[in-house]
Design a protein around this nucleic acid. Structure first.
Lengths: 189, 189
DNA sequence: TTGATTTATTGACAAATGTCACATCAGATA
DNA sequence: TATCTGATGTGACATTTGTCAATAAATCAA
């Protein structure tokens, strides 16, 4: 459990045993069952979570239509939270729920900042991670702007082949911004 | 010119005069005329650029259709580059060109890293900026997934009222992922 | 197993958006 | 001024995608 987080951080910033133990001491384990909510719109967001095991979806709900739009899946080695609410200390505007039983490691904003101040390597890790996150989100946006339903789906298959049979098609459709029915028709015609 | 950059950095990390002068010494001024390219697909990407004055568009070109898709505008106080190519030392996959005459300040990856290592405040600035960039990109993605053409346009008007009369509608349409004609019809019906 | 529930597929039709063609307008420039 | 050029608006029609409804298939719990 701690090894996953250590490998994850050290892919960017190698740490000594002491440094990692210190970092790890600020994380708090959390377990959730399938269907449980990690964050609900309206909650205060105290933690950001590293996914040790399981699969989650982050989504928002259109106020008028009640429709759900998934903007992110989280599996092992990903971070999940309502980032904006987490950073600004505001209420969550989005929801995160579990598609499987989940094991998570949470850290508060205060502790995150503290670690960054005390340990340049950790601040650096946060910086690099945020920039990697930005570039991968940008790729997703580019596909969403320029690709039609089929191109988006094919890109998803290429990028996340291991999620294809792990996540229900309904949710993949929502993630791709197309209707369940349209997605269903793509791989037959 | 240096004041703009200083204010921009100090909104996150206040610096002493000496510190800022040192930071600033690593930036290189660049001027470009309207229509000029800052980055073309295939270029190596040595710099990331802070926009002191002017307006640019970052876009990619669909290989099959030749169509352009704008994924970002850059005006005063924004950063522009092909981030992925910049970080990984790869060739650019996107293009950035000037919609107006532009004044920029560029910094190389090596110097950026050097500043971050020598000055925690600068590393912190990069970390916070990247996270802010991530959250604002995410908001854009959410609108792209869940909103129709009109909702995307209205959101753009709310968020960037000052860009509405500064940037040709053709480009705004491309940014919103709709055709010029569809956009044109939105505000009349 | 059995029944209940969720998930996936398919047809018919409606709505949104794209494409093409052409007209108009504004600003730049010789 | 006259003439470009690029930007914008609009009609007609094609294409894509969404919506609704019905059914089938898969999964889960008792």
């Amino acid at each position: 459990m701690s090894k996953m987080l250590r490998d994850h951080i050290e892919a960017v910033s190698p740490l000594t045993d002491e440094e990692f133990d210190y970092v790890f001491s600020y994380f708090k384990a959390k377990k959730l069952k399938k269907h449980a909510y990690l964050i609900q719109a309206g909650d205060t967001v105290q933690y950001e979570y590293f996914v040790v095991k399981g699969c989650l979806r982050a989504f928002n709900i259109d106020e008028k239509t009640g429709k759900e739009f998934i903007y992110q899946f989280g599996v092992e080695d990903w971070w999940m939270t309502d980032r904006e609410a987490f950073f600004k200390g505001e209420r969550a505007t989005i929801n995160i729920s579990c598609l499987e039983d989940c094991q998570l490691l949470g850290i508060t904003l205060a502790d995150r900042d503290k670690l960054g101040k005390e340990l340049w390597k950790y601040e650096h890790f946060l910086q690099v991670k945020a920039n990697l996150g930005y570039t991968s989100l940008l790729k997703r946006l580019q596909i969403m702007i320029s690709g039609n339903a089929r191109e988006r789906y094919e890109q998803f298959v290429r990028q996340y082949p291991h999620l294809l049979n792990r996540i229900p098609k309904t949710y993949i459709a929502s993630y791709l911004g197309v209707s369940r029915e349209t997605l269903s028709r793509l791989y037959h015609i």
